[in-house]
């Protein structure tokens, strides 16, 4: 697009990242105050970082603390910047790169609506059982399943439901926590 400007060697055209991108899960402990989510999300958009998934909720009501779990895809260099930039925000207490630290569990919950009758309906129930999906709503022509697990398990379940009458899906985004007795 701006190829004709290349020979000038403007610095604006030289920031191509050559490193491979990685997918990391960050856990961010923040004060639950008005605007905190906008601050975090604004930082990502202002600096051009990509959010894959974002989950936020108050976790300690007494101390008014919220935990944000954010999944990002970035180069190793940018991942360090994302952590440091998050830590610069005044209401941010701590940021942990769970993927870099290695030892953690992650879960996601999805609600999945499937429509069907006859053979499809039986097959749907068999697969739901295999994935330990719970039926949270049922009609004569539809089910809503609740399925919990790692994102790729949910992806597989959705893929299997697709030919069997998948209607719609809602996912919570990822929640992740470090293993062992320590808090973050």
């Amino acid at each position: 697009m701006n190829a004709h400007l290349q020979p000038t060697g403007s610095a604006y055209f030289l920031t191509q990242e050559t490193q491979q991108t990685e997918r990391h899960t960050l856990s961010v402990l923040v004060d639950n105050e008005p605007g905190i989510l906008a601050r975090v999300v604004g930082l990502f958009s202002a600096r051009g970082y990509n959010i894959e998934s974002l989950t936020v909720s108050e976790t300690e009501h007494g101390r008014r603390l919220s935990r944000i779990t954010v999944v990002v895809v970035a180069t190793p260099k940018t991942l360090v910047q994302i952590k440091l930039q998050l830590e610069r925000l005044v209401p941010v207490h701590r940021v942990h790169d769970l993927t870099a630290e290695g030892n953690y569990v992650e879960r996601e919950l999805a609600l999945i609506k499937v429509k069907g009758s006859g053979e499809h309906r039986a097959e749907t129930l068999r697969l739901a059982d295999a994935f330990r999906a719970h039926i949270v709503d049922a009609t004569v022509e539809s089910f809503v399943f609740e399925v919990t697990g790692k994102p790729d398990k949910i992806d597989s379940f959705i893929a299997l439901m697709s030919p069997l009458g998948l209607v719609e899906v809602v996912r919570t985004g990822l929640a992740a926590i470090g293993r062992g007795p320590e808090a973050m």
Binding site: G35, A38, L43, L89
Partner: peptide, 15 residues
Amino acid sequence: VGITRSCTKHNYLVK
């Protein structure tokens, strides 16, 4: 506070 969020070190709306 929305407009100045990205051009301040920090900002407050006092309610």
